[in-house]
Design a protein around this nucleic acid. Structure first.
Length: 463
DNA sequence: GATTATGATTGTTT
DNA sequence: AAACAATCATAATC
């Protein structure tokens, strides 16, 4: 230690003396400036010679070897490393030990949540592995320069923009089944790119490490410094990682929002489709539960999906029932009120009749659902002005299934027409209607005589 | 712009 | 698994 320090000190002194000798005493010789120039020239010449020497491989190797084998080398190495550490590297030290980037963590979390990153599903891993292998095969051994880094970033960006374009082309026409496929696509691209990224990062890191190890034979580069360098490289590459993850997240979000939009966007069916569906519903009113085949047929006729047909019938059934129920409840309440009034008013309880008439007493007459339906929309109320008024009073609040013909041009009025036209049979059954065995099951629950009817009403108290 | 109609989704029941 | 019921979100209507 002492020896070295002294040695270095001496070297320094010698160098200083030299310089002083050469430049510190300018007043010697005839033309000092000329002499100085020449001396500078000499020095430069020496430096150039040294540079040339170092380029000579055989010689350099020889020198390196000599240096390496020098008995003082390890000690010198450690001292120089120490000095370097204290001066240059201390600045970098302060920047280390950063907490993990919160944004990156967020991205990671989201990717895992969306199933893009994390535990692999399906064959994505093998594809990514293949891609990685392919990339490694084609990758030359050279170091990844700054330009390559940028190129890779641009490449990743481009890939994601093309992906985004693909989604934009599809517009709102994203089908339910497409979503999974597209997500899988994103996942695959992500994993492929992530593999490439890791590959590139590792290659570069390895290269740098090798380089530094090699140089550590001639330069004071401690293993610690190499580690630090690796850390720096990783940090630099993290920008690519971030970009990749961000792009992926973006793609997923866009895909998702598009999908949800498409899901949420409600487009009315065509008039014709609605007509066909209503026809079926009304002609199977006693049992409006189309079989799978019937649904397919309707779907084909209406140019909609089977599940849309199912939705339609589900909505239709429940809303039909609901509105019948509502109207009936109103009527019942009105009847109760008027009855109470009549009871109180001993003399003139005319209205009670009207309400009672409206009371859709279908079950009392033993009719099935179709019969009740007829009562709702039929003409038999016109026998009394009171009852008509009652009907008018009640029906507009029953939202839709009115005989008013102002709105719902295709709904009930059609049915009424159909029924009127087939005066003999209340229900226009097709010959192939095999659902008769279950006739009435749908409407029975609406029968006031049926306890289930009151359940229905109670379940929907708000009118 | 408030209201109603209607297709779709979600959670529960049967 | 199909149906039901409640609800959402948007289209259509007043």
């Amino acid at each position: 230690m002492d020896d070295q320090q002294r040695m270095m000190h001496n070297q320094g002194q010698m160098a200083n003396t030299n310089v002083l000798n050469q430049y510190g005493i300018p007043q010697q010789g005839d033309d000092p400036s000329d002499q100085r120039k020449q001396e500078i020239g000499d020095i430069l010449q020496q430096i150039m010679t040294i540079t040339d020497q170092s380029l000579d491989e055989a010689q350099a190797r020889c020198r390196k070897h000599t240096l390496n084998c020098h008995r003082m080398k390890p000690a010198l190495f450690s001292v120089l490393c120490e000095i370097k550490e204290k001066t240059v590297l201390s600045i970098r030290n302060s920047q280390e030990e950063e907490p993990p980037d919160p944004q990156l963590m967020r991205l990671d979390n989201m990717l895992i949540a969306e199933g893009v990153a994390g535990p692999e599903k399906g064959g994505g891993s093998s594809a990514a592995a293949n891609a990685t292998a392919a990339a490694s095969g084609g990758q030359p051994d050279s170091a990844i320069e700054h330009s390559d880094y940028r190129a890779k970033l641009a490449q990743i960006r481009q890939i994601y923009h093309t992906e985004l374009d693909k989604y934009e082309q599809d517009g709102s026409e994203i089908k339910n089944s497409d979503y999974e496929a597209k997500l899988a696509q994103i996942r695959q691209v992500y994993q492929t790119e992530y593999g490439k990224y890791e590959q590139a990062c590792n290659e570069f890191t390895t290269h740098v490490v090798n380089l530094l190890r090699e140089q550590s034979r001639t330069r004071p580069i401690a293993p610690k410094e190499i580690e630090r360098m690796v850390g720096i490289i990783r940090k630099k590459f993290a920008a690519i990682e971030m970009q990749l993850k961000q792009s992926t997240c973006e793609a997923v979000m866009i895909l998702r929002s598009r999908f949800l939009d498409a899901r949420r966007k409600r487009r009315n069916f065509t008039k014709l489709a609605t007509q066909v569906l209503n026809d079926y519903f009304n002609s199977h009113l006693s049992n409006p539960y189309p079989s799978e085949e019937a649904k397919e047929e309707l779907a084909r006729k209406c140019q909609i999906t089977v599940s849309q047909v199912s939705n339609w019938f589900g909505n239709k059934r429940i809303r039909y029932k609901k509105n019948i129920g509502k109207a009936q409840e109103e009527a019942n309440m009105y009847a109760a009120k008027t009855a109470a009034a009549a009871a109180a008013n001993v003399g003139g309880g005319h209205d009670g009749q009207g309400a009672a008439g409206y009371n859709l007493g279908s079950s009392q007459s033993g009719m099935g659902g179709g019969g009740m339906y007829m009562n709702l929309n039929g003409d038999n109320y016109q026998s009394s002005d009171n009852s008509v008024n009652t009907l008018r009073h009640v029906m507009p609040q029953s939202a839709g299934y009115s005989n008013d013909s102002m709105h719902n041009s295709y709904d009930q009025p059609q049915v009424s027409q159909a029924h009127r036209s087939h005066a003999g049979s209340p229900i226009d059954r097709k010959p192939d209607d095999s659902s008769d065995s279950l006739q009435g099951t749908f409407m029975q629950s609406l029968d006031p005589a049926d306890p289930g009817y009151y359940d229905q009403i109670e379940k929907n108290p708000k009118v």
